[in-house]
């Protein structure tokens, strides 16, 4: 009885290993969840469910372009990035700068012999990429559907506890 169970266990393990191995090639270090907090200031950090989005997107290159080794979906990109090779960095902020208008970035804009001279910044990349899909697939699109405002955010937007007193302001039609 005990011996049979042991054999079963070994078989199950082997089966699991063979199933997991091809997945491991693609998603070697793919995290379950990513905390996006490097640019959080007026909004709280976003707890990004990476595993769920991997299921939804099916192909890594939908978000990661050519960096994950699954080939580029955009034909323009595949002119150079046709090789299915994983890049040294696959994180968004590896390429998309959190400070897209630094002196260095502005100098890059003027480089005539450079590809990626119109490289969108980190904040722009997130919102362009996320919102595009979320609109198509009926995901959340409101600002606070993904991230709640911080106290600094409420102060900036004059909202929440910093909201202006309800005054005689009449919306819709002015003369």
């Amino acid at each position: 009885m005990f011996g049979v169970s042991n054999w079963h266990m070994k078989g199950l393990l082997l089966l699991l290993l063979t199933l997991l191995l091809p997945m491991g090639v693609y998603a070697m270090d793919a995290p379950e969840s990513v905390t996006i907090d490097t640019i959080a200031k007026y909004y709280e950090p976003v707890e990004f469910d990476h595993a769920m989005h991997m299921d939804v997107a099916e192909d890594c290159s939908v978000c990661h372009h050519h960096t994950t080794g699954t080939g580029a979906t955009n034909p323009y990109c595949s002119k150079c990035h046709s090789e299915n090779r994983e890049s040294a960095t696959v994180a968004c902020q590896g390429c998309h700068s959190a400070d897209p208008f630094s002196a260095e970035s502005i100098r890059r804009q003027g480089e005539l012999n450079l590809f990626h001279d119109d490289l969108i910044g980190l904040k722009g990349a997130y919102h362009e990429n996320c919102l595009g899909c979320h609109r198509q697939m009926d995901g959340p699109t409101g600002c606070e559907d993904c991230h709640a405002k911080t106290d600094a955010g409420e102060r900036l937007y004059h909202s929440g506890k910093y909201a202006p007193e309800p005054s005689t302001h009449s919306a819709a039609e002015h003369e």
């Binding site: 600002c143 405002k149 900036l156 937007y157 004059h158 909202s159 909201a163 202006p164 005054s167 302001h169 919306a171 819709a172 039609e173 002015h174 003369e175």
Partner: peptide
Amino acid sequence: AACNKEQGLPAPDLPFDDDSVFDETF
């Protein structure tokens, strides 16, 4: 909202995350 803060402008009539301003016409 950022302009209001940077330039030290007076508080708005409605919060900057209020979408109803898009319906205002003159």
